[in-house]
């Protein structure tokens, strides 16, 4: 069995092609995503990161190139693109804006219902998803519009998880949340990845959030991946990242500053925990 779940093969996307306003949002992107990976895609606004992920579930169609899901070309004539959308789940930015049903539970059922599952299965799926996002059960029958901001977001994420996608994409899932809400959502996502082994793709512009959770980072710049690798490797290019309007986590800078002052430290730390270990080692404690 091939463990590459998604392959992008020389994919380009142009807005208003063949006119004076032509903009290349994706420029000859080739990527492979393996089953079970936890990937962070970072880049500043307009770098093409959102365009990239919208291609993965067929919401946008490439102007050139091919995309393969489980080995099948999604642009084949008889490929079922609606079924792809339920297998590559997509949580948009501010997902709570898509809530519409009279109760939270019914809203979460919407995805499974569209998949054509019977009612019993829909209910089971919705229940599982709501448990996974840790929404207290007294809210299940409440109107989604009565929930707090963080709860709404969790309900909306449940609405996507309930379809049991094998790949879960989240576009800026922490936008607009306070630190507590942000930690809760990121913790939840990372839990789901660990417990269920889902392939998770996290789109973000916060380096520090991404560094704490993912195994692989893809940095988008000008419609193409500029760096692709483990957080340590990517953040070692912190000077180049700055030129792209991005920055490495603060601790990376601290380690590099120490090195520049002539101390013998490994500069690859990307989290507070790693930096602490390294500094303690340097101090000989």
């Amino acid at each position: 069995m091939n463990d590459n779940i998604l392959i992008m093969d020389h994919v380009s996307y142009k807005y208003s092609p063949d006119t004076a306003y032509e903009v290349k949002a994706l420029d000859d992107v080739s990527l492979t995503i393996k089953k079970g990976e936890f990937i962070g895609i970072i880049g500043h606004t307009g770098s093409g990161k959102s365009t990239l992920v919208q291609h993965l579930n067929g919401l946008m169609r490439a102007t050139e190139g091919h995309i393969y899901f489980n080995g099948q070309d999604i642009y084949d004539k008889d490929y079922d693109i609606r079924s792809l959308r339920t297998q590559v789940g997509m949580v948009f930015q501010y997902p709570e804006h898509q809530l519409f049903e009279t109760t939270v539970f019914k809203d979460v059922q919407f995805g499974p219902k569209n998949q054509g599952l019977d009612e019993k299965e829909q209910i089971k799926r919705a229940y599982e998803a709501l448990t996974l996002v840790k929404l207290p059960d007294e809210f299940y029958l409440a109107s989604p519009f009565e929930l707090s901001g963080g709860q709404k977001r969790r309900a909306a994420i449940a609405g996507v998880i309930a379809m049991k996608p094998s790949v879960l994409i989240l576009d800026e899932p922490t936008a607009g949340l306070d630190p507590r809400g942000r930690d809760e959502i990121l913790g939840l996502i990372s839990d789901m990845h660990e417990k269920r082994g889902d392939t998770v793709i996290l789109v973000s512009h916060s380096m520090e959030d991404v560094a704490n959770y993912v195994d692989r980072i893809i940095v988008m710049d000008n419609g193409r991946p500029a760096y692709d690798g483990a957080p340590k490797d990517v953040f070692s290019h912190y000077k180049e990242l700055e030129k792209m309007g991005l920055a490495a986590p603060q601790v990376t800078y601290v380690m590099n500053d120490l090195k520049a002052q002539g101390f013998d430290v490994d500069t690859s730390a990307t989290t507070v925990e790693e930096a602490k270990e390294e500094i303690l080692k340097m101090l000989g404690r």
């Binding site: 579930n57 959308r85 997902p95 804006h97 995805g111």
Partner: peptide, 10 residues
């Protein structure tokens, strides 16, 4: 945006 989000839910 909303249309895309709902399409992503099938």
């Amino acid at each position: 945006k909303i249309m895309k989000a709902q399409m992503a839910r099938g």
